[in-house]
Design a protein around this nucleic acid. Structure first.
Lengths: 93, 93, 93, 93
DNA sequence: AGTCGATTTTTGGGAC
DNA sequence: GTCCCAAAAATCGACT
């Protein structure tokens, strides 16, 4: 969509309603809605894989747990390693 | 709650507005608001202790980290120990 | 890093390392953790009331909205509603 | 708990223990993790658009409300607004 | 910039 | 087994 946007108040190219740039508002909303739709679709894809996994005899619940743990683990490992350091710093050592 | 103050419409003890038990609605809201106020106050108390800690030379940020880690740690330790089991169960072993 | 077992309550390892500051650190942590526990309990109480409200036929989400509205300044509430109307009109909704 | 290093990517330990199911488990986990990463990226893209909108003078919170309203069925939107009005009147707000 | 409180989405559990 | 509801987690905007 080329450059009509810079024409601020001609009758129809870039209407303002109550001081709002309607085109910009509409553009923002439509772009977000489109990305949210893609996001929702990915959610469905993920569900499909879980369903396949279940069909293949895997325990979906524990697969979920595994993925959850893998997601959190790096932070947790680091937290463990940092704990003593934190105490020492808190005590000003 | 039998207080005279709640009798906005003197004609009735338990007025309904549009099918809503107004007394009950009001009671729910007031109780929640009261608990939220207590909750907010505790938040302030906690802030005060952090301020004292800072005055005593402790590093507030790391004290926060320590408390955060202590809060999460039992779950994390357990998660670590459970991981291999999860894989085995997911594989049906 | 010796024996994971000794890390379970790290506050106990501190007293010797930092002199008086270690005691203070422990005190700060324990007081905050106690207040946070009270705070958590209040959160549960609030949840219980919402559950009762639901059982009494109230729409919990709308009750939440009401509480949110009462929490804000009236002017702020109106400003927001006005802006929402404005945007809706800009979009022709 | 011996040798933390071998636990970092537990999926690699699996192939030998469960035969073909281990491969399937790994595949499932990796495909899901990939989709989740794409999903996370879309979340960031959405955030970026909101930031742009804010920079353009739009009220992000209200834009969010608009999107929420458009997502719901019109009947649902009205039902909720009606209920809110009802509760407000029951409370004399 | 980092925290906090609140809302919304996701996940696990239970009823039918 | 499928659907709904409650608990948990992630996310967002506000404030400091």
């Amino acid at each position: 969509m080329p450059e009509a946007a810079t024409m601020e108040r001609p009758a129809q190219a870039a209407p303002e309603v109550g001081g709002i740039a309607a085109d910009r508002l509409r553009s923002v909303i439509e772009r977000i809605e489109r990305l949210e739709e893609e996001r929702r679709q990915l959610g469905e894809d993920i569900k499909t894989i879980y369903a396949e996994a279940k069909g293949a005899g895997l325990d979906v619940k524990v697969v979920r747990q595994i993925i959850g743990i893998r997601r959190k683990e790096p932070a947790e490992v680091e937290a463990q390693e940092t704990l003593l350091d934190l105490y020492r710093r808190a005590l000003g050592m």
